[in-house]
Design a protein around this nucleic acid. Structure first.
Length: 818
DNA sequence: CAGTGAGCGAGCTTCCGCTTGACTT
């Protein structure tokens, strides 16, 4: 066994470092934190000055045992976790849990994984910075208190299993407030004027020039008056202005900017980006993917330079040191970059290739020269009018970094000025071919997408690179927020056109407001946010994290004791928790919309046990209220009086067919027709309010036709096996279990024997009958099922394997006792 | 697969940040 044991956080890092250090060193990984506050209960001893109750995490027992053993066999232990608050705490927890001795323990740090940096670190060991550790303990305890005291209030006042926390609650608030801005937004129209002119350039050659009026008009009358004046006006070039301009490359990727660009350029979700990056990291292709630093190592700068020279030449090189601007950045790692700059591409899946190329280009571009542009504006004066037209163009004089990469933006470009303008003389006359004044509307604020929410959180200093993706998942799993699309709606706009001395006035239609993969707040998300913001405005405020970060910095500097800081917070916070628990009303987000014209009873909307509903009447009245569920695309916040009333028009009878009544209604799976005990889904294109008798019969007959073709053949006694046509092609079924048919087999040629063989070849299919609770972060709580019920099978499974697996959670053991 | 909108119980749910793993629909 080597004399030295080095402990780092990540196994991939361990592997790399071991290569640098030689045979005297053994490098192991802690896999992140090894201990945390006790899982059960709050894990803080309030009677004893907030003493944290730490326990080795169940999935780390094995790691800790292995590390303990290795420590015993080593002379010196080097704690080489990251040089930030969490990393320092990891070193301290290791020190405590492994019962290390000061005389043979060293704490070392490095920010880049290069041989030089690591050897330098080994030569400059220090001791654990207990103030920094205390800052982490304060962070941890604060988050536990906030999360575990707020969540139970939600269970009691809104709905079980909900959650609140310093990060997630603010993330949801951002989305709820953006939705309100959108709902309250009213588009303002202005008239934008564009013209196309005939003229000649300096060489006398005929040219066409597009230009926009610098002024926009607030009303149609003003736009019309302007066009009238243009009828007899003279147009000429007033001046030509040419200005040099520069564009600089964006800094190398951090976690947040990588997530944004991968979303914009590759269409990846935030978690997808992280998964692909993780694979590239583990394969040694890129540096660590969870970082807030834009810094590149000297090694990376050197190899980038060499690469640029060989690719484009010396004049394309511009070595830059970027500095981090984001709030609360801890810079324990380098920026995300290729491990080897000379590898322009990698082997792997297409996702891996595309993400790698994005990282490579971004890194290379960051060390390349500015692009030089020339912006030209031709100002065109109009006789008798003070306003001017301007034609603008932009020419790239030197492409610089644009040779490889340009960062995308979320906003669509508004003006097109990338064209080269003709060279013209001042005073040159122009003849208008046409002048068009178009009504243009101001834009709604955009809804957040996953990546733009991450950017906003980072801007506010909320969350860390390792938590952006999980936070986005959490708020969706809790059903506070939903990712979805919004279809475009039609909007009319006015177009005034002056051509050949005549003005025409037309109405055109455009599609507007389409959105894809955006985050929408749910009614629960809205109610939870409103409730928390009312009672806990401090915690929900956008600068809460920034404020506590300052406090943590003071602890790290040794200016305050962490327990005093927590005490100050808790003394203020806890009484509000108690008071809210006792005195606040149950929250259902009720909105009273008006009175039902038929019955004269109150019409309102609120959150019911199974989701948002509309209600006519109240429970206090003698007559019971009538209920109707809201549709999926409706929300308590924005539903109108008329839309709510419409909900009560269903179920609706649409006539008779085969002497049985047909009824249209909306169920869990959307609109359907019910006839003679059977259900027929309504296609999306049919409006449940409008469907006619004839159309309903058509839908029923269509489905019957499909049903008829469903059975290909039946085999065995009493039709034991049925060969069927399904949504995914032919398959066969026995005892309600479905089996695949191998590709290329004609389903008509199957015999009973062949099917039995196939069943024998797919034995596991028989075990798939029962639904198992899905494990892991991808688990999505089902809306419809009661949470307790949905959990049962998962628990039963954990129980049965508890003996076999040493890693079984204590929860499972607790369940076994009962 | 397509009602529901509430009843005493009994007991569960939950945070943020570090880091990967294992197993089929």
């Amino acid at each position: 066994m080597p004399k030295n044991l080095v402990i780092v956080e990540s196994p991939a890092k361990a592997k790399t470092i071991e290569k640098f250090l030689g045979s005297d060193y053994h490098v192991m990984s802690s896999f992140g934190h090894i201990r945390d506050l006790a899982e059960k209960g709050i894990g803080i001893d309030f009677e004893n000055n907030y003493q944290p109750q730490y326990a080795v995490s169940t999935d780390k027992k094995k790691t800790v045992a292995e590390l303990k053993k290795a420590c015993k066999e080593s002379e010196v232990v080097w704690l080489a976790s990251d040089e930030d608050r969490e990393g320092e705490a990891i070193a301290w927890h290791l020190y405590e849990e492994l019962k290390l001795k000061p005389e043979n323990t060293r704490r070392i740090v490095f920010h880049e994984i290069t041989k030089e940096a690591i050897l330098h670190a080994i030569e400059n060991p220090r001791t654990i910075d207990i103030n920094l550790v205390d800052a982490q303990q304060a962070r941890r305890v604060l988050d536990r208190i906030v999360g575990f005291e707020l969540s139970p209030i939600l269970w009691r006042k809104i709905r079980p299993s909900l959650s609140a926390g310093r990060v997630q609650s603010v993330a949801v608030r951002l989305i709820v407030e953006r939705e309100r801005e959108i709902n309250q937004f009213t588009a303002e129209a202005t008239y934008r004027v564009n013209a196309i002119f005939d003229s000649v350039d300096v060489a006398g050659k005929a040219i066409e020039l597009k230009a926009e009026l610098q002024q926009r008009f607030a009303t149609k009358a003003e736009a019309m008056a302007f066009l009238e004046k243009c009828k007899d006006a003279q147009f000429s070039v007033d001046s030509i202005v040419t200005k040099p301009a520069k564009k600089s490359p964006a800094p190398p990727f951090t976690t947040s900017t990588l997530q944004q660009e991968a979303a914009r350029k590759l269409g990846f979700s935030v978690s997808q980006t992280m998964q692909v990056a993780q694979r590239l990291y583990e394969a040694g292709k890129i540096t660590y993917m969870r970082t807030d630093s834009v810094n590149l190592s000297d090694l990376a700068l050197g190899t980038s330079k060499a690469e640029i020279i060989s690719m484009a030449g010396q004049k394309y090189v511009h070595i830059r040191k970027f500095t981090t601007k984001s709030k609360g950045a801890q810079e324990a790692h380098e920026a995300i970059r290729p491990s080897y700059m000379n590898a322009h591409t990698v082997e792997g899946t297409s996702q891996e290739k595309r993400l790698y190329e994005l990282i490579w280009k971004r890194t290379i571009a960051s060390q390349m020269a500015d692009a030089e542009l020339e912006k030209t504006s031709i100002y065109i004066s109009i006789s008798g009018v003070k306003h001017q037209f301007v034609a603008s163009g932009e020419v790239i004089v030197f492409d610089g970094f644009l040779k490889v990469y340009l960062e995308s933006t979320d906003d669509e470009p508004d003006t097109e000025n990338d064209s080269l303008l003709p060279k013209m003389h001042q005073g040159e006359k122009l003849l208008p071919i046409e002048i068009i004044a178009q009504e243009r509307f101001s834009q709604k604020p955009p809804r957040y997408a996953e990546a733009s929410l991450v950017r906003k959180l980072e801007e506010l200093g909320i969350g860390r690179p390792s938590t952006y993706a999980p936070t986005i998942s959490t708020i969706q799993n809790r059903l506070y927020v939903e990712k979805g699309d919004r279809e475009a709606s039609k909007r009319d706009y006015n177009v005034l056109k002056l051509k050949a001395g005549k003005i025409t006035d037309k109405i055109k239609a455009e599609n507007t407001g389409a959105e894809k993969s955006k985050l929408f707040p749910t009614d629960i998300g809205t109610v939870v946010t409103d409730f928390l913001t009312e009672y806990f405005p401090d915690v929900l405020s956008y600068n809460f994290t920034a404020d506590v970060e300052k406090e943590f910095d003071n602890i790290a500097d040794g200016d305050i004791k962490w327990t005093e800081s927590i005490d100050k917070f808790y003394k203020k916070f806890h009484p509000i928790v108690e008071d809210t628990m006792k005195n606040s009303e149950r929250q259902v987000g009720e909105r009273i919309l008006g009175v039902d014209p038929k019955s004269g009873r109150q019409l309102s909307v609120k959150i019911g046990k199974y989701g948002p509903l509309a209600q006519i009447g109240t429970v206090e009245e003698e007559e019971k209220p009538v209920f109707a569920s809201l549709r999926r695309d409706q929300s308590i916040e924005s539903i109108t009086y008329e839309q709510a009333l419409d909900l009560f028009k269903l179920p609706r009878q649409v006539g008779e067919f085969e002497e049985k009544v047909m009824t249209v209604a909306i169920g869990r799976f959307g609109p359907y027709i019910r006839h003679d005990g059977a259900f027929y889904s309504l296609p999306k294109t049919d409006d449940p309010m409008e469907v006619s008798t004839e159309r309903a019969i058509e839908i029923i007959e269509e489905k019957r036709e499909v049903e008829k073709n469903r059975i290909i053949q039946t085999l065995g006694a009493e039709n034991e096996i049925q060969v069927l046509n399904g949504r995914f092609g032919p398959y066969f079924t026995r005892d309600k279990v479905n089996y695949k048919i191998p590709k290329g087999t004609d389903p008509l040629s199957l015999t009973l024997e062949a099917c039995l063989d196939l069943i024998a070849a797919q034995p596991e299919a028989a075990n798939k009958k029962k639904p198992f609770g899905r494990k892991g972060a991808a688990a999505k709580p089902e809306k419809e099922k009661a949470p307790a019920k949905a959990k049962t099978p998962a628990k039963a499974k954990a129980k049965s394997t508890a003996k076999a697996k040493t890693t079984a959670k204590p929860k499972a053991k607790a369940a076994a006792k009962k």
